[in-house]
Design a protein around this nucleic acid. Sequence first.
RNA 1: GCCGAGGUGGGGUAGCCUGGUUAGCCCUCAGGGCUGUGGACCCUGCGGCGCGAGUUCGAAUCUCGCCCUCGGCCCCA
Length: 425
Amino acid sequence: MCGLRFETPRGMDDLLPEEFAVKQRIVDVIREVYRLYGYEEVETPTLEYLELFEAKSGEEIRHRMFVFNDPHGRKLVLRPEVTASIARLVASKLSRKALPLRLGYIADCYRYDEPQWGRRRRFWQGGLELLGSRDPTSDVEILVASRDVFNKLGIRDYSFKIGHVGILRGLMDKVDQKIQDSILSYIDRKMQKEAFALAEQHVEPETLETMQRLTEMKGSREIVSKASDLLTPWEKARQSLENLSTILDIFFEIDQDIHLEVDLGFARGLEYYTGMIFEQKIVDEPLSFNGGGRYDGLVELFGGQPTPAVGCSIGITRIQMFLMKKKTVEYLETPSVVLAVVGGRAAGYGLRVADAFRSRGAAVAVDVVRRRLSDVIENAVNKGAKYLVIVGDNEMKDNKVTVRDLVAKTQFTGTLEEVFGFLKM
RNA sequence: GCCGAGGUGGGGUAGCCUGGUUAGCCCUCAGGGCUGUGGACCCUGCGGCGCGAGUUCGAAUCUCGCCCUCGGCCCCA
């Protein structure tokens, strides 16, 4: 029944020329940021063993993975994200590389979500991962590079939401890791009741109360100092808060105009985070377009040396859909120059003219279906071409070409050099 | 996963309530009027009722199921 359906699987999109162009523009910007910050791009397989993501991906993502058996019965998964693969890489093949390592990726990811605007079952992420430093400047580097990507794309109305999982985890210092994960997962899903009901069974009443008050604290940078007094009895939590404070200080020192909200009750779906976490949002858009944080334990978990790390993953597909909605990227269906050959003998001459244009760097689409000139003109205008180059027996005889300005509706006949002058090439 | 609204040629739409011959229109595409400027105009053509069952003499239209799309919730990039 479903064997022959000429559609893409649900939630997985074909990218049509214009959509692809917008996506490519975003990828170009991300790669430019890689270059400016010294990130080396790597590629990992779309398929990984299930175990890679079972350990630390978090309940939410685990339920939304495409899992299947290969013909030999191995459990494989379509990657729901890439950070785990990067950590695997650093734990194995790159284990002898000098730290810090700066790695970037552009990769398609898969999650079995209910498709909706900005949420696809197949989507592209671009990431930056900085491994080998626990210094706050490395956290800030990720934040600043994230800012740059959005600025370079011409997106202005964005803001950062920043938190630190070390604070809540610090309060639950003595609590089993799995229980911590569950509590944070509840908080992430805005299920405060469930979170604190579970916490109540594992921490002192005083700690519980502090946790509850923390999760309500969000706002400007000032709330960090407010929280500071609250946390005096919990050394680890207090240190985490101080770490967050330092990161914010440095970030603001670089860019005073940055919009950000500090949220001390902020948790993310991924369980591997150990420190600063953040998301990047756009005004009037409910989704986040970039997210990341510090994950100091992941490389070690995959059998590598203990390696502190921080990174982010940028939602290329979401940004693409946002830019398409805003129509901010101009797209031309056809090159701005179309060349038509008329008459039976000028075909070779016409292609030589096209060659000459291209060697000057101009993109030229040749009318290869030999339509009537009026049809070529109409077609070229419909597709947004600016110039029509006409070559036929007359032009060939005098070694000239005719160029018609399709916008001004003027035209000019002359030698190639004269025409290049006319076009200011 | 839950809730809501919808699916008519490649794109956009009318028709559906009130079942009835060839499903209309706009754009695009192809060909011609017209062997090089006719970006116009005119003519012609290709191509469609999401899928499946039911009701009926007869279904785009009514009923049921499924699929898909778009919104909202939840969550995430």
